[in-house]
Amino acid sequence: MKFLSVFLRTLDKINPPSKVYAHCDVPCGIYDIAPAKIAASTVAKMVEKIEALNFEELDKPTRNSFVRMVMTKEQHAELCKRELLILWTDFFKPEHLAMFPDLHDAFWQATKLCSKNKQGIDPQVAQELQDAVAKIGDMLMEAKAKAQK
């Protein structure tokens, strides 16, 4: 066995082994607006469904639905924030600021809207979040298109 080990190490000196990554942070390089868009749409849908609930009837099923909808809204607003932060911190680089001078503000406003959607139940705010995410999606597409040229 030792002979085999010596033989293989000698072989490595002539022809180095391939690297195999057991890495903690391999950048996958996959950046997409879709998860943030879906999360923002879910928030809007939950707001719509909560608004449609009949609060005159506070029976158990209605209360149960209400709690579940609020939970889902909360979770997806958080998910949306996380997905946006990944794009902001990992995909966009300082050179993108030349293309999009309002880049930081767009992300700041969008992530703040995630929090605002957690705090309240307002269709207008939910729509604003969807619009903000769509705007960032456009920036992402434009930046990717430029990188491919």
Binding site: L8, R9, L11, D12, P16, P17, S18, K19, V20, Y21, A22, H23, C24, V26
Partner: peptide, 21 residues
């Protein structure tokens, strides 16, 4: 194939720099 480990996600079973068949 001969491979050399890069990274720590398989530690402690497989450490960075270990050589594998």
């Amino acid at each position: 194939g001969r491979f050399i480990v890069e990274g720590d996600s398989m530690a402690p079973a497989f450490l960075k720099g270990e050589r594998l068949v």
